[in-house]
Amino acid sequence: MRTSKPHWGRVWRNRVALTLATLSAVFGLALLFIILYDILRHGLSALSLDLLTKDPAGPMSGGGLKGAFLGQGLLTLVATLVGAPLGILAGTYLAEYGRDKKISKVILSICDLAMSLPSIVVGVFVYSLLVKPLGGFNGWAGVVALAIIMIPLVTRTTESLLSMVPWTLREAALALGSSYHVVIIKIVYRKAASGILTGVLLAIARVAGETAPLMFTSFNNNHFEFSLSRPVASVTVTVFQYAGSPYATWIDQAWAAALVVTAVVLFLNIIGRMAVKWRG
């Protein structure tokens, strides 16, 4: 195109740099596939229906992790029932009643701090709050720990989604004679509903794989009981404990359980992120 001589140095530097960038991306993708491949490779061998349907047995005699799966499901479900509404309400306060007020800026900063806290800090806190005083590990403590992790996540999503809803929409509804809470519930929430749902889904995906906050709270239990006042087993804590054990059967089960957890968490993430894309 140009009549002057091509600048070979510049062209080559460009090629090298861009090749390195491409290789980085390839490397990143390769990492994901290697890890997933390893989880599949180790996990599939011990994956069976027994894993999901049987109670744990000794290290020599098979058994399954029924209680751990049910327990993790129960903890996550109850934590979501507590954490998601609170997060949505908090986000509503920040974006609606507290909009442009100094106090919401302060609370938003606190929310960011809570969101960035290492999950083990939450586990240690809830131990002191609900395990030590009550005299033992219990499911409620696990629920509270997961909810504490969830609340700031949901608050942040809700706040940013509600803030994106055009202000005139609220004025239009108010000008019709709506009271503010009706405007929020009937119009603003409706406009932001799919986004909030996605946010909650991603928050569930996040807590469903948590281990550190459960180790000192709900701990583990060989049997599953529908009671949150006793220790509750969870897959993640079991994976951690089994992986450290000297028994090959337990280590195999840890891999199989890891496969299930990873599949569930990645599935939730993909669904959530696709939903974000569909909304445009």
Binding site: E171, A172, A173, A175
Partner: peptide, 20 residues
């Protein structure tokens, strides 16, 4: 105000269709 605003309707610069 709620009663008042139902007596005096308002139309804004940009259309404000509710998400329904």
């Amino acid at each position: 105000l709620i009663e008042l605003r139902s007596q005096l309707g308002m139309v804004f610069q940009k259309p404000t269709p509710f998400p329904m």
